[in-house]
Design a protein around this nucleic acid. Structure first.
Length: 761
DNA sequence: GGATCTCATGTTTTT
DNA sequence: CATGAGATCC
């Protein structure tokens, strides 16, 4: 099969560009992953480049996996020796291989996550006698991270003021602590790789020789360290193919700098530039809206996005009374769309995670299944972290942060005092605490300061560590070590004893089992590889698409995804744009890009909403519609419930939102407090947001759907128990039942019949 | 050593 | 409001 088949002209130009620097500016939905994968295959098949000379870097494991998958589909095989991975995993691999050239580290170094980092910073503050009340550890860590992203070592850290001086000292201590623990944080993976390549021309030469062709995804998200890394590797051959879109740069606060695109152009003036402007995702109308929003940002490379999908459903903009009503109406709109779309086709994208709460409540109310992206936090669970900490100590006994976590978990009556004694003794002998315990267990006769209960407990831990390490060095696989740890620490018993609620203990144990599954699947991997793989996965990498459900996610998490129907609630000034970005033009521009990213996720339909009042930090405050809404041309939006009329007025005064007096008995009270001085529409039945494609159908075909439930019936819900049907109505494709449940804590609920699975008694 | 209370804090979070 | 960290009390 010709690999150029199905590619448009611009895509073909990019894929077949002569070897050398190439910059692809790819608008949303323009097929950038396609271009990247086809380029790789083109290099291999048409230009005869051996796969092992190719390095392709992405930001997420998901993107790397996707590309691997597509390449395999194109070639019918996984090209042997091709290096494909995230910046961090590629760096970790290099560092692991070059560990002999790294002072202070051995090959069992562990990767510290943000929790571990914070613990080290706190320890540093304590050691340096800095008040963590006055100087927030988070901010210190942030400063350290920024420095690392800019390749500034503690020695080179500039201190113009007192806080900077403190940060420098903490940074210095922190960095030494990392070495002592044989640990690196995420930023170290990048910085240490760059430093190594800078300091060792011989090592650099080897990697330049190895990676003769470099491809980079999401180039606008690279930070200084990543840019430096790419340049070092590409120096000499300049075969660097980067794909990016500065309009989708939304990680500035993490050090990403879209100006790297400009730097690239300056550094490689001969670079071939390709603009991908044809969009294969959205309707023209949605693209026009996106363009209208983004065009207000200064200093952009102008792109003229277009699509074959002429026209499209107007964008619906609505104002809600508050965030609860906003959520209710979104769920009702979803219900009304169920005939046309599956729940999998719909997503709600918001600025802050806190916004998900109201949405979740509304979804639960209607029994509509949903999946929350990024909220699982499996690897952040206490029990999971406990076991990983054990494994990490077995793998790298120098890891003091993990050791601190496990030394008294399960409880061994080893409190602060005993631990301090241990630390003192270990330090005297130049050991890390876990190493000290192993010495103690090997030779209990040696001089030590412990006695009685503490001595026995420490001996026991030392003995266990020796056992596990013997397993590690023997034939045992990861699952064997895992089981030995669970068994010898009596971890299950510990969970039972420490959780008051039995279900809680069960759940935690289930998580431990889940982790064990992951471990047993990695049977061929070494402990090093296993720990590295779980340190470098993100939660969003495992988006479970297997069940039918609405997706809830932040706008950040939405990048790279697409859905036929997209809802973006919270278009209020202070939410989007976020209040923290109000006094900084760069940050405001980034907020705008965030909205741009959100809008361009939508294929067919887009629903934007804002609220008249919004609850922030326990306070319900009047809200102003997002300034970004003013930039949407009126002709692209539908006149949802008079919203357009209102938008034409300079100032809105109140909501014309409607609510159901039956389903939300508490609402009218609150509501009337504002509506008497507002030009509110008289309360009528709640209506979903108009679905533009459906309006006519509805008029033509009056509802004749047969209802399953009738007023007065007694029904049973699997979680809410028994209740009486108050009302049931058809939404066209589904039936919405209002039930008064006997359980007073449940009360009145509106739910979609297809999900609620109510049993008629 | 553990439970309970108080108080501060509060975007986004690819790895 | 809701969460989490740290202090304080038992």
């Amino acid at each position: 099969m010709d690999i150029l088949t199905g590619l448009n002209d611009a895509q073909q130009t990019a894929v077949t560009a002569p070897i050398g620097p190439v910059l692809v500016l790819a608008g949303p939905g323009s097929g950038k992953t396609r271009v990247l994968t086809h380029r790789i295959v083109y290099l291999i098949q048409e230009m005869g480049i051996p796969p092992w000379h190719i390095l392709a870097v992405t930001f997420t494991n998901k993107a790397a996996k996707e590309m691997n998958h597509r390449i395999a589909a194109l070639t019918g095989d996984h090209p042997r020796g091709l290096t494909m991975g995230t910046f961090h995993s590629v760096c970790a691999r290099i560092l692991r291989r070059e560990v002999n050239n790294l002072p202070y580290y051995d090959s069992n170094f562990v990767i510290y996550d943000s929790d571990d980092q914070l613990k080290l910073v706190k320890a540093a503050l304590k050691e340096l006698n800095i008040d963590d009340k006055k100087y927030s550890p988070y901010k210190m860590l942030n400063g350290i991270s920024n420095a690392k992203n800019e390749l500034v070592t503690p020695e080179a850290y500039q201190t113009g003021n007192y806080i900077a001086e403190l940060t420098r000292r903490v940074y210095d201590y922190y960095q030494k602590a990392l070495r002592l623990n044989n640990g690196m944080d995420f930023d170290d993976l990048l910085m240490n790789t760059v430093l190594l390549l800078q300091e060792r021309p011989d090592v650099l030469a080897a990697y330049q020789e190895r990676y003769q062709h470099i491809l980079v995804d999401e180039f606008q998200d690279t930070n200084m360290a990543q840019y430096a890394l790419l340049n070092l590797l590409a120096k000499g051959h300049s075969n660097i193919f980067v794909v990016g879109d500065s309009d989708q740069s939304i990680y500035r606060w993490r050090g990403a700098d879209y100006r790297n695109i400009n730097r690239f152009r300056e550094q490689y003036p001969a670079a071939q530039m390709v603009l991908l402007e044809q969009n294969y995702r959205s309707t023209q109308l949605i693209l026009d809206a996106a363009k209208a929003i983004i065009s207000h940002n200064p200093n952009r490379v102008h792109k003229d996005l277009f699509t074959d999908r002429r026209g499209g459903a107007p964008i619906v903009i609505r104002e809600a009374y508050d965030e609860r009503e906003e959520a209710t109406v979104i769920t009702m709109t979803m219900e009304s769309l169920l005939g046309q779309y599956s729940l999998n086709d719909m997503a709600i994208m918001y600025r802050t995670n806190a916004q998900s709460r109201a949405l979740e409540e509304a979804l639960m109310m209607t029994s509509m299944p949903y999946r929350l992206v990024g909220a699982t936090k499996f690897y952040k669970r206490r029990e999971v972290k406990d076991i990983i900490a054990y494994l990490r100590v077995v793998h790298n006994p120098a890891d003091g942060v993990s050791f601190d976590r496990i030394i008294n978990t399960p409880k061994r009556a080893l409190g602060a005092k005993s631990q301090a004694t241990l630390r003192g003794w270990a330090r005297q002998n130049g050991w890390q605490p876990a190493v000290a315990l192993m010495h103690l267990a090997t030779d209990p006769g040696r001089d030590h300061p412990f006695k009685g209960r503490a001595f026995n407990a420490f001996m026991q831990v030392g003995q266990m560590l020796l056992n596990w390490i013997a397993l590690r060095d023997g034939e045992a696989n990861i699952a064997d070590i895992f089981d030995a740890i669970l068994d010898q620490t009596r971890y299950k018993q510990y969970l039972r004893d420490s959780e008051k609620v039995e279900d809680e203990a069960e759940e935690r144990w289930a998580n431990v089992q889940e982790l064990r599954n992951v471990a047993s699947q990695a049977d061929r991997a070494t402990l090093t590889e296993f720990l590295e793989s779980i340190a470098l996965v993100s939660e969003t990498d495992n988006l479970d698409e297997s069940q039918t459900a609405v997706t809830l996610l932040t706008l950040h998490a939405a990048k790279g995804l697409e859905y036929p129907v997209v809802f973006i609630p919270g278009l209020d000034d202070g939410v989007l744009p976020h209040s923290r970005s109000m006094d900084d033009a760069e940050e405001m521009a980034e907020e705008r890009r965030l909205l741009y990213v959100g809008i361009t996720r939508a294929k067919d339909q887009l629903y934007l909403s804002h609220a008249f009042r919004r609850m922030t930090w326990g306070r319900s405050d009047a809200s102003t519609p997002s300034r970004f809404l003013n930039d949407l041309p009126l002709e692209l939006t539908s006149a949802g419930g008079g919203a357009k009329k209102r938008r034409q007025q300079t100032k809105k005064k109140a909501s014309s939102w409607e609510w159901s007096s039956q389903s939300q008995p508490k609402r009218p009270k609150k509501r009337s407090a504002v509506s008497h001085h507002a030009n509110a529409v008289p309360p009528t039945r709640s209506k979903p947001l108009p679905a533009p494609n459906r309006v006519e159908d509805e008029d033509r075909a009056p509802r004749t759907a047969v209802l399953t439930y009738k007023t007065g019936q007694t029904v049973r819900h699997r979680t809410f128990g028994e209740g009486t049907v108050i009302e049931s109505e058809s939404t066209g494709s589904d039936e919405v039942v209002t039930v008064a449940f006997k359980d007073k804590t449940v009360g009145l609920k509106r739910m979609a019949a297809s999900f609620a699975k109510l049993e008629i008694i």
